[in-house]
């Protein structure tokens, strides 16, 4: 009875606690039909994930769960064992359409979009075409041709990369305004050594945003986007060179990594991460300028894990 295990998966929930965009509920004030939860193919994992169509299919939402072990809810005078908190947030339907467009491009021809977006495993996918955002932004990822009253589309990698780059830029902007710590991840020295300190942080933001966008695209597209962003690829932390390698590049002692993952502020205020990180960046920058004087693209790439 007291054995430790995760909540068993076969428990049948009949209640969920969620936080949803107001637009989901506001639709009740219109004549639009009720929202529906559907299962669609997750573009990053190729397996089924849960989404929601709202306002008569005109808006797509993603459903995520905050899920920490050992939690339960009290809701009014009731207890709910399942301590998850669902987030229902607006989602760009193009991410879900891209795999279908890419699959069809192999045939090389323009096709009516309705023909491209069909999937017997995920029949709800055709609803994506009803989304307002789909109609307004399909041209970001596909070339369009109009013949008579019919429109035809063909996936364009070039356009898609431009679009994804804009997505990254937009995300970077929001990240910069937020208190989210983007430092402390894996990064390359090559990028930094070409630039000044501020650009070193720029790489953190770019990589972070790239990582977030990559949650919604295939691995291939993710790698392609990395190239477009001119960020050296880091396939996995294991393949990056150990920190000792980095020391050889610099005479300066490497500062002991401060732990940026923790700041237990008792006052419950959010803090800016800027000052602490920039100290570390300065150090990286110094590694860079003293290093190899080769252009960025030709440079042999040195990786290291920053902190942690």
């Amino acid at each position: 009875m007291t054995t430790k295990k995760k909540r068993s998966l076969n428990i049948q929930n009949d209640r969920w606690v969620a936080i949803a965009a107001d637009s989901v509920v506001d639709a009740s004030k219109t004549d639009a039909s009720d929202p529906v939860f559907v299962r669609l193919k997750n573009p990053a994992t190729d397996v089924a994930s849960l989404y929601l169509f709202g306002s008569g299919d005109s808006q797509l939402y993603e459903v995520k769960a905050f899920d920490e072990d050992y939690h339960s809810w009290f809701v009014g005078q009731t207890v709910q064992r399942d301590g998850r908190l669902l987030y229902i947030t607006p989602m760009d339907p193009l991410y879900l359409l891209l795999p279908y467009l890419i699959k069809a491009v192999k045939e090389g021809k323009f096709q009516p979009i309705q023909q491209l977006v069909m999937d017997e495993d995920f029949p709800a996918c055709s609803r994506l075409l009803s989304c307002t955002q789909t109609q307004a932004s399909l041209h970001h990822v596909a070339e369009e041709k109009e013949v008579g009253s019919q429109r035809f589309h063909r996936y364009s990698q070039e356009k898609t990369m431009e679009w994804l780059k804009k997505k990254v830029d937009k995300t970077v902007k929001v990240l910069k305004k937020s208190n989210i710590s983007v430092g402390g991840g894996v990064k390359s020295t090559t990028y930094i050594r070409m630039k000044q300190e501020s650009d070193a942080q720029e790489e953190d933001y770019l990589r972070y945003a790239h990582g977030l966008i990559s949650e919604y695209i295939s691995e291939d597209l993710s790698k392609e986007l990395l190239k477009t962003l001119r960020l050296p690829e880091i396939s996995s932390p294991k393949e990056s060179e150990p920190p000792t390698k980095k020391r050889k590049l610099s005479d300066k002692p490497v500062e002991a990594g401060e732990d940026y993952t923790k700041f237990n502020s008792a006052d419950f205020t959010r803090k800016s991460w800027g000052s602490g990180i920039s100290k570390l960046e300065t150090h990286f920058a110094s590694i860079g300028t003293g290093g190899l004087g080769i252009g960025k693209r030709e440079a042999s790439i040195h990786f290291h894990r920053n902190v942690l």
Binding site: N13, W16, N42, A48, L50, V63, E215
Partner: peptide, 17 residues
């Protein structure tokens, strides 16, 4: 790997309600 933004926040995709 799920991006650390999500793993740090214990956010996961769901496959059903």
């Amino acid at each position: 790997e799920t991006h650390r933004f999500f793993s740090e926040r214990r956010l996961q995709s769901l496959d059903s309600l």
